[in-house]
């Protein structure tokens, strides 16, 4: 649904983004991962034209983004950044209402949307709607930032290191929330990060960037099992690649028929977590239990081993 065609950005002599072409699928999360200076943020910012490309073009839903004024385009695209950029002089509710107001929504619709989003982001409207950003914790500010980006029901959400400023525990929670929200709204998300674990955790597809080029673009498991470039292998990490691969498969997916007298594990747990649990308890198998409490079969250490290397 988003197509980048030979997108290039040069500043004087320096080529920051070099002929990048890729297609982002509808209703998916695409993560662009790279070291700092790899051009990933510039690439993202060319999608909503905060940076105008030197050459190449961006198509959203088949139409060229240069066909309308940049600020009108941006109202249709959500944008969330690391330091959240909340307006310090506006309340939480006013911050979230920025884009709906720009789009001329009526007051009732805007208010309803603000309340809905506050609810989804677990911020009680009665407590938080009238607070100012400086009265919130870092995690809350970040959630308001994402809520604001989603306020006008954009089809596309761009996120530039949205969780970079959060501590590890809150970050994991924020990542879970993002996955839930993506399921809930079906938004097409393009997210930039330097954290490969975050990329694997969130991305349906991951693009690895270095020096302005996309080295590889594919599903996380592909990057692990068939790295196209030594640098991709280095970034994805050779030492614990088996563990990373295991973390991409859920217990429910890997469950095999049979009974186990081992511990119960939730179907949503990754094989990496299941393996850790089995090692910790010193047993060979676990039974998989779905969210509704029904047994879905078992997982054995042997079974896990078969998932931990290229097929």
């Amino acid at each position: 649904m988003i197509t980048l065609e030979k997108l290039t950005k040069r500043y004087g002599e320096a080529t920051v983004v070099n002929e990048v072409s890729l297609t982002v699928e509808r209703n998916s999360i695409t993560v662009i991962v790279g070291t700092s200076g790899s051009g990933k943020s510039t690439l993202l910012r060319m999608i909503n034209r905060l940076v105008e490309p030197t050459s190449g073009r961006v198509l959203i839903g088949g139409s060229d983004t240069t066909r309308e004024p940049a600020h009108l385009l941006r109202r249709r695209i959500g944008y969330a950044i690391q330091s959240h950029g909340l307006f310090p002089h506006r309340t939480v509710a006013e911050n979230i209402a920025v884009v709906p107001r720009l789009l001329g929504w009526d007051v009732a619709r805007t208010q309803a949307r603000v309340r809905e989003l506050l609810g989804i982001f677990q911020l009680d409207p009665a407590t938080f709607a009238d607070k100012f950003p400086h009265q919130l914790s870092g995690g809350q500010q970040q959630r308001v930032g994402v809520a604001r980006a989603l306020a006008a029901e954009p089809e596309v959400l761009l996120m530039d290191e949205p969780f970079g400023a959060l501590d590890p525990i809150i970050r994991t929670k924020a990542q879970d929330d993002l996955l839930d929200i993506q399921h809930h709204f079906g938004t097409t998300i393009v997210l930039v990060t330097h954290d490969i674990d975050e990329a694997f955790r969130l991305g349906d597809r991951v693009a690895v960037m270095s020096e302005g080029r996309v080295l590889q673009y594919g599903r996380p498991a592909e990057l692990l099992t068939q790295p196209s470039d030594p640098l991709v292998a280095r970034m994805t990490g050779v030492a614990d690649r088996a563990m990373k691969l295991l973390s991409l498969t859920s217990a429910a997916e890997a469950a095999e028929p049979g009974e186990s007298d081992g511990p119960e594990v939730p179907g949503s747990a990754s094989l990496r977590e299941v393996l850790s649990e089995l090692v910790w308890r010193g047993v060979n198998s676990a039974s998989v239990v779905a969210a509704d409490g029904t047994r879905k079969g078992r997982i054995t250490v042997q079974g896990i081993l078969s998932h931990g290397h290229p097929a």
């Binding site: 600020h71 941006r74 950029g85 307006f87 920025v98 720009l102 604001r148």
Partner: peptide, 18 residues
Amino acid sequence: CPPAVLEAASGMGMSARQ
């Protein structure tokens, strides 16, 4: 003015005047 705030303002689709 905090750069992140300005970037967010532009990123959300405010015109220069807004």
